[in-house]
Write a protein that binds this DNA or RNA. Structure first.
Lengths: 213, 213
DNA sequence: TCTTGCGGATACACTTCTGTATCGAAACGT
DNA sequence: ACGTTTCGATACAGAAGTGTATCCGCAAGA
């Protein structure tokens, strides 16, 4: 359902505008505070447009979760691609790890709205049975994708992860969420240098190297 | 402000009932979906009672954040106390660590409502400047308390943490949040055995031991 | 160019929430 | 026991949102 490729361009464009508006409004007011009226208005429409595209707010949010998941996974894949392109073989472990950190650290600095939206969607999935399965699927896909990348990186520098996929990814994702939320809570912004340092330390914790230096 | 010790018992009781109601309502409908009317009604009052105790919903939520923080910290302290009481000196590292895991693992299995409430309050703090400082203070206090306990535990079994307080606590808290949320998303409940296994693995990751066995 | 139909706007009736103002009653000091 | 204070209920006016039903105009096809 709601596959933007299989509908008229006009309809797809309207839905895209509604989705973008929903991102903003949900980030600003929360999923509970987001209203059909608010989203439609933000998109430059009236409620009429909304209801002729989605049956309900729930319906739109399902669409949004799918979309957000796709974007996230694509971001990670792109970072991985960049890393693979830039990597020069034969580096020392530390240099290679530092390179990896540099390539992935921007994922640790999402804009405030993304942090809020992500948290809101997770809460929404927790509360709404009809959404949960889809949400979990998206998270799993992301976790799997990231883990593969991580494993490849480790193998290429003769290091290995201390724990299996599931725990590793939970540590990673939890750390990302916790870190970006605390940054905004604490400073009101994200300090890139601090994030590089944080990610480096995390890598030291979850990765085990056979040799040193 | 709103120190329950310095007000008449009746007032304190009413506020306590309102706070409890707020916990439930916010967990169920989210901070954005929680209304003065809903909270008052849940507590068995009308809005009149609410407004004669709090100036606004924001006002109550500030109180709630403080309260939730106190409860959390007390829980951790109690777990630490239990651990100290039950611990028999001279155990092997692995046995001692296993004991620690057993003592703290129940903190990894909060009821669904606590997971939701915690997430909602964090989001609320992110969005409301007037609340942020207090929220951060509460989190810092919790982190410090937990870290002290963790350090003492490590020292007593001749092990040490791989990273400093800040990163360690971010990993821990992030892992806790991520884990409980995913449990409820995935299974709809929390599996205690799985949590023990998860916590054991986490301990292996963040703790470094000098000897083995 | 005509017309057909879809997409978005408008109107309507209803519900829920807000904040204030007022009132009755329960608690408390003397 | 009595008056005072305080606390919680009720009433009111207004704001905002919901979903449906209806209408209109533009865009695409013959």
């Amino acid at each position: 359902m709601s596959d933007h490729a299989t509908m008229t361009p006009r309809r797809a464009a309207t839905r895209a505008r509604l989705l973008d508006a929903a991102r903003e409004v949900i980030a600003e007011r929360g999923a509970g505070g987001a209203t059909v009226e608010g989203i439609a208005e933000r998109a430059g429409f009236t409620r009429g447009a909304f209801y002729s595209n989605y049956a309900s707010l729930d319906d739109l949010i399902v669409d949004l979760i799918r979309d957000v998941g796709e974007v996230r996974l694509r971001d990670v894949r792109e970072a991985a691609g960049q890393f693979a392109l830039n990597r020069t073989p034969g580096l020392t472990i530390d240099t290679a790890l530092a390179g990896g950190v540099r390539e992935f650290v921007h994922l640790l600095q999402p804009p405030m709205n993304d942090v809020l939206l992500q948290a809101e969607l997770r809460l929404y999935a927790l509360r709404h049975d009809g959404v949960r399965a889809g949400y979990v699927a998206v998270v799993r896909e992301t976790m799997t994708g990231v883990y593969e990348i991580l494993e490849r990186l480790c193998a290429s520098v003769n290091a290995r992860l201390r724990t299996g996929p599931e725990i590793t990814m939970e540590i990673l994702l939890g750390f990302f969420d916790q870190g970006s939320a605390m940054s905004y809570l604490d400073l009101g912004r994200i300090d890139p240098d601090a994030q590089v340092a944080r990610l480096s330390q995390l890598v030291d914790v979850i990765i085990e190297t056979d040799q040193r230096g």
